[in-house]
Design a protein around this nucleic acid. Structure first.
Length: 473
DNA sequence: ATGTAC
């Protein structure tokens, strides 16, 4: 199964006909160029179509690329009342990895004279990289429980943020039904010292400038305008989420024969949503999701303190949304309302205008969808559209074009930083090797991804942001 | 993504 097996149905829509054990078709939203870049991920989209209880189609977003079991950029919904399964591979190892955008009350011109001070303030204030500490150090399970059940709300309760922040968070900052009892001791140990830390790889905190506004009314509702300074934070649930994924994949591999489930790839390990293993995973996953949200809340507070001190500026939350999560949601499929388990792995929820889960001040505009690009290029703010396919989902980023190893070959981190600084982008990196692995050429063109997502009717462009300062793990 | 290996 490769890109050659895809039939083009529309300018940005390709179809994989059901064959073999596939229960539904595969649908890939992409341009011809992006489909050709998807490579091995196409076979994974077909594999996901074999999962018990899958509804409608196995979907892939324009930034789809190969991942653990499920492709990154995949969306799959199952019906629990029809034996539908939940699969940790459909969420990914970095549970609730996502993006938070804050808008400053100053423009780029006003920040310029103090940018170096802001960057020098962020450098020590934003813990990142491997094992380098965090905003909070919690001794153990008891101290972590508030975070695992309360997410961003718990951080706010403890003085890290304001109530309004929660209105601008997906799920108001916490997924319900978190079950800390399903989080292993090992996951707790790994997570206890990492609350409020970026991590590494493609995770970052960037100071950005709004370079272009495509829809002024929606942008105004989101609280952003041209030339304004914003802060974008991209990070997840660190070692805790990783350990939860590992634990529950193992558990489901053991349980699958008892449920009579066969999958074409071991990495698609899954269990019925309505089974002990399925419920255990969803409870632990929700706890990791809340950890990820609290993580972004604490890092946002750290950035706020720096901006207040170094620039006399305030940062208001635009939105916080995950792109690695499974959620129980209501959707109308073929005219019938159904409660489904929607897996989004490297895909962003994009609620349309009027959706009841949106806060009042965003009801007419739709949900802010935050798309991190690569350092040195652009990031995007999008919004959901009515009547979109794929269970109100869209892309999540540029998507890698080269492996980490390939990317670092022939690129020197120090030279890369110097080149970016010459282009007017301040860089505070914690690892030269890590920086080299993230050079923009290692990624697909995020603008082409967003173009395809909009062309496919998944979302609409609202604004484009460019980096002025990059803080990397 | 990830104490880059159970």
């Amino acid at each position: 199964m490769t890109a050659a097996d895809l039939v083009q149905e529309a300018p940005y829509r390709f179809r994989i006909e059901p064959a073999g054990a596939m229960r539904v078709p595969g649908v890939v939203f992409a341009s011809r160029e992006l489909v050709d870049a998807a490579d091995r991920a196409i076979g994974q989209v077909a594999d996901v179509a074999t999962l018990p209880g899958i509804v409608d189609a196995s979907y892939a977003m324009p930034d789809v690329h190969w991942g653990y079991g499920f492709a990154i950029g995949g969306v799959a919904a199952t019906d629990p009342r029809d034996g539908g399964v939940v699969s940790p591979g459909g969420v990914g190892f970095d549970i609730s990895c996502g993006v938070r955008l804050l808008a400053a009350d100053i423009d780029a011109a006003a920040l310029a004279p103090v940018l170096a001070d802001v960057m020098d303030g962020l450098d020590p204030a934003i813990p990142r990289g491997m094992g380098r500490g965090a905003v909070w150090h919690l001794p153990g399970r008891d101290e972590l429980t508030g975070i695992l059940t309360g997410g961003s709300g718990y951080a706010v309760e403890r003085g890290h943020g304001v109530e309004r922040d929660l209105l601008r968070c997906e799920d108001e900052g916490a997924v319900a039904d978190a079950d800390p009892g399903r989080v292993s001791e090992r996951a707790v140990e790994r997570g206890a010292r990492q609350v409020g830390s970026l991590g590494s790889g493609n995770h970052f905190l960037e100071v950005q400038r709004v370079a272009e506004v495509y829809d002024a009314d929606v942008a105004a509702a989101f609280g952003i305008r041209r030339d304004q300074i914003c802060v974008m934070i991209h990070c997840g649930s660190r070692g805790l989420g990783h350990q939860i994924c590992t634990d529950h994949v193992r558990e489901m591999e053991r349980a699958m024969p008892g449920h009579g489930i066969e999958v074409p790839d071991r990495q698609l390990a899954c269990a019925p949503v309505e089974s002990p293993e399925g419920r255990a995973y969803l409870g632990a996953m929700a706890a990791a999701a809340n950890y990820g949200r609290a993580n972004r809340q604490l890092l946002a507070e750290a950035a706020r303190a720096v901006f207040r001190r170094a620039a006399g500026a305030r940062l208001d939350l635009v939105y916080d949304v995950s792109h690695n999560l499974a959620k129980i949601e209501d959707h109308v499929v073929a005219g019938r309302r159904r409660r489904l388990c929607v897996h989004r792995k490297g895909a962003t929820r994009a609620l349309p205008p009027g959706h009841p889960d949106l806060p009042g001040d965003l009801r007419d505009a739709g949900q802010p969808v935050l798309i991190p690009g690569t350092m040195g290029t652009s990031s995007y703010v999008l919004t959901g559209v009515a009547g979109a396919p794929a269970f109100a989902s869209t892309c999540h980023g540029a998507g890698r074009a080269q492996s980490r190893h390939q990317a670092a070959r022939g690129v020197d981190g120090k030279n890369l930083r110097a080149a970016m600084e010459r282009d007017g982008i301040a860089v505070r990196a914690s690892s030269w090797r890590g920086l080299a692995e993230e050079h923009p050429g290692a990624y697909k063109d995020v603008s082409a991804v967003v173009e395809a997502a909009e062309g496919a009717g998944l979302c609409r462009k609202v604004a484009r942001l460019v980096p002025v300062g990059v803080v990397k793990g």
